[in-house]
Amino acid sequence: MHIPYTIHARPDTGLFNAKLGVWLFLASEVMLFGALFSSYVLLRIGAPSWPHGFEILNIPLATLNTVVLITSSITMVMAWASLKIHDFARYKRYIGATVGLGFVFLIIKAFEYGAKFSAGIYPSESTFLAIYFTLTGLHGLHVVGGMIVNGYFWGPGSRMWHTEPERFTNRIEVAGLYWHFVDLVWIFLFPVLYLL
């Protein structure tokens, strides 16, 4: 059976299915993280005292992680651009780099968590730490999810390029949208948790 508009855009909406689908999914993600951000603001305003993130957390590491994630965003978009100019080898390098940078991000994050745990700092310590671990943990899960998807398109999933190049390019565009969103969330998490 054939589902229309999986490859080419529907003329009146100008969209192919997966593109609309992923944007809708991202809209729901906005509401998910929005609820947590909102809770953060609410709890912070209500608290008699609130620590500054920079007193407890490791800013240099987090800054490094910001750089890593932003870099992975540009490699992701370059991976898509490479497919657009039909350079598959280059695509492979860029998507590989994206997955690799995701790993680097997680490793740095693991160091951060590890240092906290070994210093006896747990989520149950304070509301600030509760929200810090919940938000970064959830974000970390999103990174893992993105890496699985990108890893698939780097490995076995990339075979589709040889049979249905346009459809494959669409898939990378859609995966990219998700990955940039994960980056975008971090761009807000970083100042809110670490710098304020």
Partner: peptide, 24 residues
């Protein structure tokens, strides 16, 4: 699509309260 995610967030926070001992 848009109303369920806040409950998901709340469920995660309640799970943290129950399992990790947080105080959301």
């Amino acid at each position: 699509l848009l109303a369920f995610p806040p409950l998901e967030a709340a469920a995660v926070m309640q799970l943290m309260d129950r399992l990790a001992g947080t105080s959301f």
